[in-house]
Design a protein around this nucleic acid. Sequence first.
DNA 1: CGGATGCTTGAGGTCTATCAAAGCGAGTGG
DNA 2: CCACTCGCTTTGATAGACCTCAAGCATCCG
Lengths: 248, 248
Amino acid sequence: MSTLARAGSGLSASQLKAACSNCGLRELCLPVGLSDAEMKRLDELVTRKSTVRRGDSLYRAGQPFEALFAVRTGFFKTRTGSPDGREHVTGFQMAGDLLGLDGIGDDIHACDAVALEDSQVCVIPYAHLERLAGEFKELQRQFHRVLGREIVRDHGVMLLLGGMKTEQKLAAFLLNLSRRLGERGFSPTALVLRMTREEIGTYLGVTLETVSRCFTRFQDDGLLRVRHKHIEIVDLAGLQALVGDAAR
Amino acid sequence: MSTLARAGSGLSASQLKAACSNCGLRELCLPVGLSDAEMKRLDELVTRKSTVRRGDSLYRAGQPFEALFAVRTGFFKTRTGSPDGREHVTGFQMAGDLLGLDGIGDDIHACDAVALEDSQVCVIPYAHLERLAGEFKELQRQFHRVLGREIVRDHGVMLLLGGMKTEQKLAAFLLNLSRRLGERGFSPTALVLRMTREEIGTYLGVTLETVSRCFTRFQDDGLLRVRHKHIEIVDLAGLQALVGDAAR
DNA sequence: CGGATGCTTGAGGTCTATCAAAGCGAGTGG
DNA sequence: CCACTCGCTTTGATAGACCTCAAGCATCCG
């Protein structure tokens, strides 16, 4: 929010040179374990940044896939339309997360990516990335790792959706959010939710009312302090005990 | 089952040369759109076959990841342990499907792969595959497609688990199975299930009793004919109507 | 400051999990 | 080859969780 305010409003922020080599997110994004020389070549790859306003789509299902996106600032959800019309959220992405992997399979995006707040992304042209991956062994390896982790992450969500009750689901969701915010230097216990109860609900496979009720139950049990979008985790161990252990 | 009988029992079937270039599954597996020369190099890659007996694991969660596996014959399930001890099935794999992608992310397998019938797989050493992918643009592209499709497939399962009722889940499951069997030259309407009701249940996020009851309900409604593991799809359109449309 | 959106809370009904028991089949060993 | 046993499946009864419908309230934003 604070960094965004400065960079915001201006239309094409292309003046600011996007540079992976000095990006504060480089530990979270693609380039890890690359040599300086390789890092410089990667800088050439990521030449463009893009700003997405809250509520707008970065891409939509059905659109041709041309690039991956790395979130610099802001918050996104990815959603796919359920066959019966309702929407289903497949994930939430924050700074350092990669967006667009759903397009790799068939060169067509399989879901929408919607900004939940004003956001900024790096544009990574995919053809360019594949070319570079062919040249740099380490980049290739790293890219495969990212894809592989996404697959494992999805399996974790399947476990969550298929094998847990509402309380466990919500606890796992909050712990996941807490951990990721902590990794990015934010407080892991004082969260501000960027998404609505309904979005949490379709992500977890329950209704928004059930999410709301579960929040108040957690508060009554002394696990959380809930004031609308502001969540304070009071008893982190208690939440972990609910899930069993699996945080990711 | 019939082809297996011949190749079975013998311990190392290395006598039989595994060759992608003349494999009947090459349309389903990795190599699609490769030139003859590239195909020959790929043959070098897949030098080993392995036999897995029903009930045995091809690999287990926690084991070091060294190779991908392509199913030649047979049927597998992949499962991950739920935090509270129960097992959750993440997928079913048949001839032409790839196994082991869960290990790419962190060089450790994230789930078990268990044979549901006596099976045979091609072993694809991963280090070798990555090397070759660096050389052959088309192989690299194809490999990325496979990973990308797996991600999209997982999103489809998340949709199924999170947004559908039992009837829709089971219908979607049967339609998926039917389609994949059809693509492999089997009857798309007369299926023999290789998995138990419980395995279907944990895959769909319901109990085995609910699966069983749903089968009988489908039979009563004239959609199926069910005799234990033998399922005959009577009204395919009716099943599709239940789901809405999304088959995959 | 006022409308709109999102959140909370309640009541009732449905669906599914759970516990329990019996029936059928496939595979095994005599 | 047959009988037996074990595992899988089916079916029933009950209780509890979640969804649905409905209303009132807080908050955010222009």
